[in-house]
Amino acid sequence: MRARSSRYALAIVIVAAVVGAWLVPSFVHGNFWLHIFDMMLINAVLALGLNIILKTGQVSLAHAGFMAIGAYASAQLTLKLALPFLAAFLLSGILAAAVALLLGRVILRLKGVYFILFTFALNEFIFLVSKDAVALTGGNTGLVGIKAPTLPFVAGSLQTKAQFYYLALAVFLLALAFLAALYRSPFGRAMDAVRESEQLAEATGYDPMRVKLIAFVIGSFLAGLGGSLSAHFLRYIAPFNFTFWESVNFLLMNIIGGSFSLAGPIIGALILTPLPEFLRDYLLWQQFLYGLILMLFMRFLPDGVTSAIGMSVRAVVDWVRTPRRKGAPVAAETQP
């Protein structure tokens, strides 16, 4: 009974959040904040992509590299081959996923710190290639003139930040719904099992390599989609959009939000995307503050904001549930 009511509550929260998110452009005035909201959604898609990789216990520092693959692919497919946006968008995700599939078979054998170091090198390598493969990437100065997204059955292109917002929101919701369903399926449990212990997972009949590979491919697919979105949103891409620090940023969104739930990366993207705007006033010290905040976070909230919220909510609920002298109105609520 408790489970059912909390499921209702969850459903209400989700519907309210979706409706709220849908209404954002009508409340937010001025392109600047819309720009930030658009960036939040793009970052959330990317952070979700990293979350599924983290779920299998692999910490990747190459997420920005896969984002780059998607961004360059999508830009060139629309610029050179004049493909419609939607086709380029999907292909860019598929391309990033294909690269992940090819690499994954080999690199997912690496565990723990070795995987971190390899993906760190991989991101640097993709960065160097994006600087030097001038014919494909435009070299250091990147690609200009990337078109705004177009959609079938929609006239014109999504020129404005508000129009783009709905596209990004739709992609984000689809990604979220897909991952939520996946995490609740047996495959979700398999991923948890692999993260906890590969031997144990193997003993219970999962093939850890297969589980990790599927997660890595899905995560990279989302990275590719995110890359495509960002290319058509900013309409300009250059190698410096995809450095190692960008990968760190996606990892931070997961860690600061909390990587053990889907809410984590989303909250992380909501916090970290506008953060530089708030640090602007501390121009001189912003870098120091950023580093300091990061260290304090690791020290005091290592499991992220969601776990902290979760714990405090639980504490409040427990406190409310505790029968006190003046009857227990709480109990009535939980009755059907």
């Binding site: 001025g30 392109n31 720009h35 410096f240 959009n241 530089p276 121009l283």
Partner: peptide, 21 residues
């Protein structure tokens, strides 16, 4: 004056802020 950290996305964001805010 806004900082762009010598990179594209922060510059685009700064320009957007200057223009619309």
């Amino acid at each position: 004056a806004y900082d762009d950290k010598y990179a594209g996305p922060p510059a685009a964001q700064a320009a957007q802020r200057l223009v619309s805010q």
